[in-house]
Structure formats: C-alpha cells, structure tokens
Write a protein that binds this DNA or RNA. Structure first.
Length: 295
DNA sequence: CACTTGACCTGTCCGC
DNA sequence: TGCGGACAGGTCAAGT
C-alpha cells in the first residue's frame, strides 16, 4: 500500500531526523530485506553520514557521504520508523510512544543504529528491501529508476506528457496504465481507484477509448487525490505508518476504495468490487461505465 | 514487442 | 474450534 503519498509522508518525517547522522551498524533477520554484501556494507555504509532523504516514485533514496546511496522500497507492508535515543527527538509525550517503544517486533527486518537513534525497517510480508548503490549516475544505472515515469506532482508535469505516455499503451485498460510506473511514477491501487472515480472512468476502459475530456479530468484527478492524501498523512489500511509511527487518515475521505456495499457519494448507487489489471478494484457502476463499442 | 499472469511472503478472514 | 483456501497489492520474471 505505500504509494506516492505514503512514501512522501515517510520521507518528510525522516528528513527531520536522518541528515548528519552516522550509520553505526546495520543488521537484518531476513537476507533479502537487506540486500547488501558484507564487503559493501563495511566499506560504504558503516561510518558513512546520511546527507538527505529523497523520494522518486515509491522509492526512498538517502545519499551518503561515502558516495553511495541507501535505496529503500516499502512494497506492500514496509514501514520505516525512527526512534531517537532517550531524552531527544519525540519526547515522552508523543502519541505513539508505545508503538515505537515496542520495536523491534516480529516484523522488524532491518535495524540500523545511528548516532542519535535507531531506524527500524519493518515488513510483515518481506517484499520490501534495502539496497546500496553508487550515487554517481544512480538515475541512469538503476534499472528501476531508469525507466520510471515522471513525478505527477512536480509543477513541470504536463497533460501532454501524460497523454503521450498513454498513447503507447492504447490497447490496455486505463487502470493497468495508471499502475504502470513507466507511464507516471507513484500511483498504486488506492489512488488509481480514487482518481478513476473522480474522473468518472470505468477502470476496464481501453486507454484508446477514453475521450480527451476524460483524460484531462483524470490527469487532474490523479494530482488532486494524491495531494489531498499527502496533506492527510497518507492512507493507513493495516500496516502503513509514518516515520514516527503515526497512521494516515486519507481513507476516511476515500470515495470508493474499500467502500463496496455503501452508497456512491455522487449518485447513491451501491459501490461494487470488480477485478481489473489483476487487482481488487472499486467502482460505482452507475458513475463509471464502459463506453459502448461502435458497431 | 505489447500485454497478462504468476511468484515473492505472511496474516487475516471466510466457509465448512 | 480447526483447517484449507482466497485475498491483500508493488514489481519483476516468465509466459502468451
């Protein structure tokens, strides 16, 4: 579930704590979660200082003084939670003191000791990972970053970029195209469903059959939905929390996601759940209709 | 090449 | 109450 708004919320939280801290040690309970060789860890991670916390799509990037960058993908159930050493940072009164104090727990995969605190990478389903790659040329050399589409919330992102990326995917469903990280970066299942509802487009509509008016609506909807979610701290279903262990509140405002059986806020018809692009998909069958095929 | 499906995992929920 | 199976969803590999 961590999609762009959740990852951005995590990044924002970590940015407060991580820069200028030195990595003292890194240990893991599941080798795939910390995919860094012993030699690289010893020479480029331990003793290096974190310079900043960045995000590209759903990926967290932390450049180090060693010339390497820590890359972290949360995939579905990943959490990055920071705990300061006692007497600093959050203070005794912060609302998730109990959650943070319980770490590590059985889903903790990586523990990174820092100068002034500890970073926990928790990941119930073990799909996420922490890697280390050279900062120089990272965006050209990393296979994932190299083909990642534009950042939808950048001011420089245009409808023309959105439209031309979609032209190459005209035979696939609009939902599959939105989830394709090479079309645009950061949209996952929640925001795909929410923005398709906002734009009144059925998720199984072929990209080539979506009218120009609706495509423009969708372009705006993606940005609106994700901006709103960032302002609400993201979406917390089961697992997601931010760097301080706080949940996000966006799902309270969701119109269709996980709302099957309840009334559509636009027309009152019942929201239903279908399958599209291999994923559970939530629509209002009255507001979102597949266009009738000609002939 | 365009596109879809299965694998990677664990925890939860549902039906019997 | 226990057990099997479906499901959750980001990305890559493998398949059509």
């Amino acid at each position: 579930m961590p999609e762009l708004p959740e990852v951005e919320t995590v990044r924002f939280g970590l940015q407060e704590f991580m820069p200028t801290q030195k990595v003292i040690s890194a240990t893991c309970d599941w080798p795939k979660s910390l995919a860094i060789s012993e030699a690289l860890m010893a020479s480029k991670l331990i003793g290096a200082t974190v310079q900043s916390v960045q995000r590209r799509g759903k990926l967290i990037i932390m450049p180090l003084s060693s010339g390497y960058s820590i890359l972290i993908h949360l995939k579905m159930t990943g959490q990055l939670v920071y705990r300061p050493k006692s007497g600093r940072g959050f203070g005794g009164g912060h609302p998730n003191a109990s959650l943070v104090d319980k770490l590590p727990d059985k889903s903790t995969r990586v523990i990174m000791e820092l100068t002034r605190g500890t970073l926990f990478f928790n990941d119930q389903r073990k799909f996420g990972w922490v890697k280390l790659e050279p900062s120089d040329g990272l965006y050209q050399n990393n296979a994932f970053l190299k083909k990642l589409g534009p950042e939808p919330l950048e001011d420089s992102y245009t409808f023309e970029q959105f439209g031309s990326a979609l032209k190459k995917r005209s035979k696939t469903s609009i939902k599959a195209a939105l989830l394709d990280q090479t079309v645009l970066a950061g949209v996952g299942n929640i925001y795909a469903d929410e923005s398709l509802f906002m734009a009144r487009i059925h998720p199984l509509t072929k990209v080539g059959d979506v009218s120009a008016v609706k495509l423009k609506r969708l372009f705006n909807a993606v940005r609106e939905v994700m901006s709103l979610s960032i302002s609400l701290g993201g979406s917390s279903d089961r697992n997601y929390v931010d760097a301080k262990g706080n949940k996000g509140s966006y799902l309270k405002f969701a119109q269709v996601f996980r709302k099957e059986g309840s009334a559509c806020p636009n027309c009152g018809h019942k929201i239903i759940k279908i399958r599209a692009a291999g994923r559970g998909t939530h629509i209002c069958p009255h507001c979102q209709k597949v266009p009738k095929l000609a002939g």
